[in-house]
Simulated assay, not measured.
Amino acid sequence: MNKSTFFILPAAAMLLAACGTQTSSVSSKASSTSEGPSSKEASSSSSVDPYTFKTISPAGAPTLAYYDQGGNADFVTDTTPTNVAGQFKTNTYDAIVFDSINALKQIKANSYPFKLSNFITGGNFYVVSYGKDAAAVPTASDTFASFSENGLPDLVFKKLLASYSGYNTWAMPTVTYLPGVSDVLTALVSHTYDYYFIAQPALFAAKAKLGADASKVNVVANVRNDWKSYSGQTSIPQAALFLRTTSVEAHTNVAAAYTYNLNQRIKNSITDPAKVKASIETYSADATVQAAKFGYSAAVAYNVQKDGANGFGMVDPDSIEDNHDFVNTFIEKLGNAAYTAFDDSLFY
């Protein structure tokens, strides 16, 4: 079964989504060919279900899909991704945002009652240099900092290094792996290395801290764009929304409204970053408070997304017809023995 079919919202759920009365409902795919629980599972009842989905997400880029949920007590963020991953084995949350492939592996291995519903981010990784000519590429004598050795972003980059013609002139030096992207940010500000594998919005934050020296930072590679050139896929399967199956079964209209609203927010985050900025500022005018909730400030969100840049790598809900095919095609293109195809039963 799958997945070019999309949510056709029941009338009550559509009314909720349009009126915005269910602030905890987040959405992903109802208005597009993206996915979500099938409309055939929806209740025919016209009554309004007061249930709200409780959601947890790692702080950072994925929270942009929840830009108007800062004040919602049922939307929780955590700066430690392993804390979020641990929630799959609890009964606390109806919706969990996490790295798509690793979450699918967890769910498959442990029979957790979750399915992948929607993609949120699709690659926000860059290779940049500091103090090099704009056209320079890595050589064996350079220094290079990255993070999360053999994590999915690292494996994508390694695959491109091995197989993508656009990197043919590179002669990669030994890579120094730092604990996390925030450490790469710090190293870039200190210009400790020649080249850096880094993600947005950390890249923007580093350039802001560098001030006038930000002009010495050059983008050498946009990894998402290069993956598209190599694989033909529009994005990299990064953060995704997972819904608890029992919650969807018990509250189908709520799930429909949630995913519908999420999709709309993702679209807005791409096309209307000023709206995103205003919503985050409505939550708090204090940039420190904003960053504590979302992982970045309203100003950073606006500047990274403006002018169609989509630096956060948000996935347009219309760009993926079938999440199951998208993931398995990615795994095939990646060609890494640690990742094997997933069954359709793990996807809405």
Results as ranks from 00 to 15, higher is better:
residue 60 G to Y: 00
residue 296 Y to A: 03
residue 85 A to I: 12
residue 213 D to T: 13
residue 268 N to A: 10
residue 253 N to D: 11
residue 149 E to I: 10
residue 156 V to S: 01
residue 244 R to M: 12
residue 272 D to W: 00
residue 251 H to T: 01
residue 235 S to P: 05
residue 12 A to Q: 13
residue 142 D to P: 01
residue 307 D to A: 14
residue 147 F to C: 08
residue 287 A to F: 14
residue 43 S to Q: 07
residue 56 I to T: 01
residue 273 P to C: 02
residue 81 P to N: 14
residue 303 N to E: 15
residue 174 T to W: 07
residue 239 A to H: 15
residue 117 S to W: 06
residue 137 V to P: 06
residue 186 T to F: 00
residue 128 V to L: 06
residue 125 F to K: 04
residue 320 I to F: 04
residue 97 V to G: 04
residue 289 V to L: 15
residue 170 W to S: 06
residue 76 V to H: 04
residue 89 K to T: 11
residue 20 G to D: 13
residue 254 V to F: 02
residue 21 T to M: 12
residue 232 G to Q: 08
residue 222 N to C: 07
residue 277 K to P: 02
residue 179 P to Y: 06
residue 304 V to N: 03
residue 215 S to P: 13
residue 114 F to S: 07
residue 157 F to C: 01
residue 1 M to W: 08
residue 212 A to C: 05
residue 267 K to P: 01
residue 273 P to V: 04
residue 178 L to W: 08
residue 32 S to P: 06
residue 34 S to G: 15
residue 243 L to F: 05
residue 304 V to H: 05
residue 23 T to K: 11
residue 321 E to W: 08
residue 245 T to Y: 00
residue 6 F to P: 07
residue 44 S to D: 11
residue 21 T to N: 03
residue 170 W to Y: 14
residue 169 T to D: 15
residue 329 T to S: 10
residue 284 S to W: 05
residue 345 S to G: 01
residue 219 V to I: 13
residue 231 S to G: 04
residue 283 Y to M: 08
residue 12 A to N: 10
residue 51 Y to R: 04
residue 32 S to R: 02
residue 330 F to E: 07
residue 237 P to Y: 10
residue 322 D to Y: 12
residue 5 T to E: 08
residue 18 A to H: 09
residue 202 A to T: 03
residue 168 N to K: 15
residue 4 S to T: 11
residue 4 S to Y: 12
residue 130 Y to W: 09
residue 150 N to K: 14
residue 341 A to E: 15
residue 111 S to M: 08
residue 332 E to K: 11
residue 283 Y to L: 04
residue 67 Y to S: 02
residue 60 G to L: 00
residue 172 M to F: 09
residue 82 T to Q: 13
residue 60 G to I: 04
